[in-house]
Amino acid sequence: MRLMLGAEAVVIPLGALLAGFAAFSLFLLVLGKSPVEFFALVWKAGFSSAFSWQNTLSRSAPLVLAALCVALPARLGLVVIGGEGAIVLGGLAAGVTGLAVGGLPGVLGMGLMAAAGMVLGGLWIGAVGALRIKRGVNETISSLLMAYIAIALFNHFVEGLFRDPGSLNKPSTAPLAESLRVGDMPFISAHWGVVAGALACILCWILLEKTTLGFAARIAGDNIRAAQVQGLPVGPLVIGFTALGGAFAGLAGFFEVSAVHGSANGSLIAGYGYTGILVAFLARHNPLAIFPVAILLGGFEASSGLIQRRMDLPDATILVFQGMVFIIILLSEALYGRFAIFTPAYWERR
């Protein structure tokens, strides 16, 4: 019975994902392309070989962290969709810090870079939470608009104050010292950001499910009046959870800069923050589910180049796919509690 009660949270998103696949297949058929070929290519590019897994995993690392920036505020009933801003600013902070700590031993230097990224990301999204609590500003809109501001600030600094004069046609900060580059893990050819993402998911799960803070956040997210009557610190909870989510997104920015690009530049603005929203919703904001879902979507992102070349489809095809899945996931939210088989009453009667 307990199994069946929990199954609802797996069956419905899985069904929605499959429905999304079906809808996208129809879209491909209308374009005169083969859905079979599409999914075969996704498999090939994303999951079939060690090389494709490396590609998939390195894309899923920032997705995991960006998804946490959605899932943590979601516990308080907030829909924060501006994780992209925290990733970009976190990356900038990490890149700039890296230039200042070049003389320190690698681990310490990287620690400082990661900390700088997390602090700036946390302040950025924490401000969204503070605006909500203190001024009643809608967090969805403010986080989205702040993401645009973050990207503009990023461009301003990378093309101005922090620009490496050597970066000619792609404005970048100065390249990081080799000792400050996060390397690949042993055995698996993917960088340590994957492990950091997995650890962050486990930490968040513990915070949400095993601590009184997580429980208080759920009460406030479900009924803020009840939380206030109980005297729970709703304001600090909102600001704390949004800031923590922003810190994880900032950490994603650090890994992108240190492990992938080697400096802060325009490649950082890759839309991971937005795909992270889809990951979090598919995972029902459950941190443990975020990791596998991020790998799945990381695989789709990794396959976009191959699909473009082989099927003669535009780059944006994967975005169409993601958009379709997202809409069906949002629709599926209305299904919870509608199936008698998933309710305790059904099992009590038997």
Binding site: T212, F215, A216, R218, I219, D222, N223, R225, A226, A227, V229, Q230
Partner: peptide, 25 residues
Amino acid sequence: PEEPLRNACAPRMSVAENLAFRMFD
């Protein structure tokens, strides 16, 4: 408070969890 479901409960949380609002911490 009046209308307990509206003012003193989290409707989507379980009975056990709602009963724990005072003692959980």
